[in-house]
Computed example of a mutant assay.
Amino acid sequence: MQTPRASPLRSLFNRGGLKEVFEHARNAVVATIFVAAGLEASTREGNLGLFGLVDPRLAGYVVAGVGLLLILANFADGLRRLAKFRQHILLQIALSIAYFFVTLRVIQLVILFRTHPC
């Protein structure tokens, strides 16, 4: 006997999908702030006033690299979760493409707001 497929909205609200969406967005923003902070530290001239830090530019690049790894891990996790979404393959492809562009835009906006004064 076949079980009826759950609608996307039912999956979103009844199975904790909405909570996962917000957790994923939070993780993407936090990882992007790491990248923005690292890039900001690497572009500043002179000493940042951190005791014991030999090269602040190198530390900035390391922090930005860690943030980039976190972004990639979060993106891979999001794609894995979308792949487990049991809907039509065209819907999965459309959601994956939309997910990529939304994630990219959020990353760009957070870096822009973090590195440029208002």
Rank of each mutant, 00 (worst) to 15 (best):
F85K: 01
I33G: 06
S11K: 10
Q87W: 04
L104R: 13
F75H: 05
P56M: 08
N74C: 09
L39D: 02
E40K: 12
A83F: 09
G16I: 12
A98P: 02
L90G: 12
R105G: 09
F51Y: 12
V30R: 04
F113M: 07
S11A: 11
V29Q: 05
G49Y: 06
V21H: 13
V54N: 04
K84G: 07
V66F: 06
L104S: 11
C118K: 10
R114P: 01
I111E: 06
A36W: 04
Q108C: 01
Q87S: 02
C118D: 14
I89L: 09
T115S: 11
E45C: 08
R81C: 06
A25N: 05
S42G: 14
V21Q: 12
A31T: 00
L69G: 13
Q92V: 03
F113S: 08
A76V: 11
Q87V: 13
V30P: 02
A41Q: 08
R105W: 15
N27Q: 15
R5W: 10
A41C: 07
S96V: 06
L70E: 00
L90M: 11
T43P: 00
Q87M: 03
V106E: 02
G38F: 00
N47Y: 14
V110S: 03
L95T: 06
M1Q: 15
Y61C: 05
S42W: 14
A31V: 00
P8W: 08
F101V: 13
V110L: 04
L79H: 12
A73F: 06
Y99W: 15
N47P: 05
L9P: 01
G60Y: 03
V30K: 03
L68F: 15
L48K: 15
E20F: 09
R81M: 06
F22E: 01
N47R: 10
S42N: 13
L69W: 10
L109Q: 08
P8S: 09
C118R: 14
A36N: 02
H88D: 07
I97C: 06
L112V: 04
P4R: 09
S42C: 12
M1E: 13
A37S: 04
P4T: 10
G16N: 14
L18G: 10
N27M: 14
L58E: 11
R26W: 01
S96H: 05
R57M: 07
N74T: 15
F75D: 01
V102L: 12
S42E: 13
S42I: 06
I89D: 10
L58V: 12
V106A: 08
R57C: 00
C118E: 14
L18F: 11
H116N: 11
G52H: 07
V35M: 05
G49K: 07
R105H: 14
Q92S: 04
F75M: 03
F13I: 13
R26K: 10
I97Y: 03
I93C: 08
V35S: 00
G38W: 00
I93T: 12
I97A: 09
I89K: 07
F75N: 01
E40D: 09
R86K: 10
L9A: 13
V62C: 03
I111S: 04
L18N: 03
N27S: 15
S42L: 05
Y99H: 15
R26M: 05
V66C: 02
A83V: 04
S7E: 14
R10E: 15
F22C: 01
E40V: 10
A73C: 05
G46W: 08
G16A: 13
F75G: 01
L48I: 15
V54Y: 00
N27L: 15
H116W: 13
A94N: 05
P117C: 05
I107N: 00
